[in-house]
Design a protein around this nucleic acid. Structure first.
Lengths: 417, 417
DNA sequence: CTGTTAGCGCATTCAT
DNA sequence: ATGAATGCGCTAACAG
């Protein structure tokens, strides 16, 4: 039914081994026979049997990419960058700093136009798996990938901030690497045995809050991500560190809540009423009467909206809102608008990540830029062994402050009109 | 080195065949031996060798999902929905209409907590492949998947609007299905041999423009997507059909361009200066002096920004802008803001898709809702053969008009203040 | 340079 | 209900 190596060999008048050799390309073959084989392959429309090949060679061309949320561009950008590196041969990717989206085509290609499926010249099948933020699914996908004898696995984004899961993950990573699968972490804390590219979330968050402090803000609300993620914790720690270094928050001049129609009523949850995991609640509340003002929520827009309302209800004197990421920040902006507050005149808002839409938001968002594409590309190269590992196997990726129009001095401060 | 079936068999004191049977679960095995085998599996930390299994059984548990742009939530939502369906056993997904993101975990799970990698009870490894909109990469991925003997392939989003590619694609699909791989199309025009779920882009676009016409708009600019995509063409056709049905566009009352500071200068390209494929150009221009007013661009925000500027430069009398999708619409909104025009007071704007952020935009975007999650979930079920195919193998997915705050009667029209 | 030989690890007959 | 044998399609030594 399905055409095999032997069929091709027969048609080309050579042995199966020879066919295998021309297709692998890693062995000298006479040009004449090579041509005949290629013709036979073409005629028969032969496509290599991946499983058989993987079994015999004890390795596969599958590369897994794990993401927490495939609908979030934060992951999409990284995943796209990783995939872009997975072509055969040397990278054809121009390392342009702003090369967010690959030019048409990209490096992925099979042996040639006339060989629709024959060659095995190094192309990897880079695939992304969506864990939905679930540690269990993460482990499950890792096992599935292990089962496929994947060539490499890259784990992107924040991990579960849970010792038990961290341990299981480390064990899994150890097994994977023992089996010859290269494991690289991109945008998460290091795990022994895996190469890791970790973002400077703490440093970025700290510098962002320092920026606000320098502007004169003293009552700063913090909209954190889900409490059980490492990224959430690190960013929050950076924020708190800046606060601590600056001394206790003063009560400062308290601005009257809101004048006009919106004053009486705090808008409720944005849109849909579905319950969300980790939505704003009092669990991680701040001590009454004292800073810091922190509310946890999911990494999504509705969460930012709710949290902003909650924070302003608790502490109307807030003059700045620091959001866990850009998406959350946009939700917070929407809430402020609905409350009749102007940005940045009444309240400053900051994001994190610098996703593409942040620069275009109204007002343009002050945020922390994470070089997601570049980091992903590098992770991809590490996964392929095409780039030398950083010393100690861990590299810290710098986060860059992007000051735009959503931050300004607080109302009544010097420099204000 | 790596532990195999034989090792497990030895430790359990049974034959390899027996171990295979308990793991497959599709054959009667005594409860006692079954337990022993399971223990051995656990003790040895055995993980099935996917390639070997696939080779012997002549099928694999790999399911491929092809997307045009992994950083675009349009695809992320569909891909996430498809993956969510790929668990073992019956669907545990509540079919809630707004179930955008899966609850923690989702249906994907291995045989049980104590069997980290042994069972094969139906879980599929659903993986997404990013084509970046390149037909060549699309074919390449299809071949790679074919090579892996994938159980199913789901192609999402608009296809290349090119007869040659369509033909190649059809040929590939035929081969895939012949080899036992189920192929389903989600959000694209039908291809013989594949089950397809196609969006009513034409109908949605037509109703959207009719809405504008009913409001009183007569000079409507259209910001189209890349000219070589089927979705682009269908949406544009719907728009033009509405226009044609309504009679020729009248010149209408021409609004003076812009008063004040922004009047003199049309802002240039938003942000980055990198060249974009399919950016606004004169290639598909409208006839001079007459409607329709159409500009093509990429499916991204910057494109929307540029195209809006271009359209207003050409025809300052425009009172409404119809964008190819929500992302483009937001870019257009940004341009209008920078030009000092109010939405919808001066110019109405519409999007397409109804991505999550559209409802929260300022103003909330009038758009056409495509049930992406539901369509993806259905495609996933079709791919697994868990849902009966629609008659003829093709189902049309309805598009629903969502009228929000970005559309209003044109300036000076009846009903205006 | 090319053909021959021997598995890779598992699923599946067929026996028992 | 279980074991023994066979082969899936390919690659990797080994010859020649």
């Amino acid at each position: 039914m399905t055409v095999t190596l032997a069929d091709v060999a027969a048609r080309a008048g050579v042995s199966a081994a020879t066919v295998s050799r021309v297709l692998s390309g890693n062995y000298p073959v006479a040009e004449a026979t090579r041509a005949r084989v290629l013709r036979a392959v073409d005629d028969l429309d032969y496509v290599v049997n991946g499983p058989a090949s993987a079994l015999a060679a004890a390795n596969s061309d599958l590369v897994g990419i794990l993401v927490n949320d495939i609908a979030d561009p934060f992951f999409g950008i990284m995943a796209g960058a990783i995939q872009a590196e997975m072509g055969g041969g040397p990278s054809t990717v121009s390392a342009g700093a702003e090369a967010r989206s690959m030019p048409g085509g990209g490096p992925l290609s099979l042996s040639g136009p006339s060989l629709p499926g024959a060659g095995t010249s190094g192309e990897k099948l880079a695939v992304v798996c969506n864990t939905n933020g679930s540690p269990a699914r993460e482990l499950t996908y890792l096992t599935l990938l292990q089962r496929q004898r994947a060539a490499a696995v890259v784990l992107t984004g924040s991990g579960a901030d849970d010792p038990e899961h961290t341990e299981r993950l480390a064990a899994k990573v150890a097994k994977l690497t023992a089996a010859g699968t290269r494991v690289v972490l991109c945008g998460r804390p290091p795990v022994p045995g895996a190469l890791t590219l970790t973002f400077d979330n703490r440093g970025g968050a700290r510098r962002l809050t320092e920026h606000l402090l320098t502007l004169g803000h003293r009552r700063i609300g913090y909209i954190a991500g889900p409490a059980d993620r490492t990224t959430t914790r690190h960013r929050l720690e950076g924020h708190l560190a800046a606060l601590a270094a600056h001394g206790p928050q003063t009560t400062g001049p308290v601005r009257p809540v809101v004048e006009g129609a919106a004053g009486a009523e705090i808008p409720m949850a944005a849109g849909r009423a579905r319950p969300r995991r980790g939505s704003a609640d009092a669990a991680h509340d701040t001590a009454p009467g004292g800073p810091p003002l922190v509310v946890h929520g999911a990494y999504d827009r509705a969460s930012g909206y709710d949290a902003a309302c909650e924070l302003l209800r608790r502490e109307p004197g807030i003059t700045a809102l620091v959001a866990a990421n850009d998406t959350v920040a946009l939700g917070a902006c929407a809430a402020l608008r609905d409350l009749g507050l102007r940005i940045p005149h009444d309240v400053s808002v900051t994001g994190f990540d610098d996703l593409p839409f942040s620069a275009d938001a109204a007002p343009a968002l002050s945020t922390v830029r994470l070089p997601l594409y570049e980091a992903g590309a590098r992770a991809g190269r590490l996964a392929l062994g095409r780039e030398i590992a950083p010393p100690g196997g861990v590299a810290m990726i710098r986060a860059e402050l992007m000051i735009r129009n959503s931050t300004a001095p607080p109302p009544g401060a010097a420099g204000e009109l």
